[in-house]
Design a protein around this nucleic acid. Structure first.
Length: 177
DNA sequence: TAAGTGATCTCT
DNA sequence: GAGATCACTTAA
């Protein structure tokens, strides 16, 4: 058996901010052509609840955002600016719309570049984060809280001064071996 | 600094 | 059905 096992669904069924910060240091695992690639997650953003004006769920469920209202541990992949696929993982209890955007890893920075590097597209939308989906997450080494940096989310100024300035962006500081 | 790109959402 | 918007990237 593997020495590491994928993060269970219960992991994602926690408060969104908890998941977003805890995912730092974890491994994003992608199975392609029989090979498994592992990338350490270094940047995430939280989109939390029906009142978050920066979230796609801000106007209730739509065909696109409905997956955010579903159970945790499901991938939410959508096309942004007509060009870039963005990768999110649904968090929190069912009927509570929330997700964590995986923005970058130690070797690939930027949410659009990350999905391009991992050959991620809309086919993974609505799929669970398990190895059978060829995309899942494994735990990483523990991260000291002092290494987690928070800042406002990117590109959400339209959400107004309150929501756009909340420290919902999480980054792993410093370099790691 | 600005343009590219196309699905999605909000009006008519 | 039409128009504005948008959780970004790249090339100058």
């Amino acid at each position: 058996m593997d020495t590491t096992s994928p993060l269970p669904r219960e992991f994602f069924n926690q408060p969104t901010l908890t998941v977003a910060s805890t995912l730092l240091g974890c491994r994003l695992c992608r199975s392609l052509d029989g090979e498994v690639l592992r990338y350490r997650i270094t940047e995430t953003e939280a989109y939390d609840g029906p009142d978050d004006l920066a979230s796609h769920a801000r106007s209730g469920p739509t065909p696109r955002s409905a997956v955010m209202f579903g159970p945790a541990g499901i991938w939410y992949v959508y096309l942004c600016y007509g060009i870039h696929w963005l990768l999110n993982i649904v968090t929190g209890p069912e009927a509570y719309p929330a997700a964590v955007l995986i923005r970058g890893t130690d070797t690939v920075t930027g949410p659009g570049r990350l999905t391009r590097a991992l050959a991620i597209n809309g086919e993974l939308n609505h799929r669970p984060a398990i190895p059978e989906s060829a995309l899942w997450i494994e735990p990483g080494e523990p991260v000291e809280p002092s290494r987690v940096i928070t800042s406002p989310r990117i590109g959400v100024a339209y959400a107004g001064p309150d929501w756009s300035q909340r420290p919902y962006r999480f980054q792993l500081s410093g370099n790691v071996t």
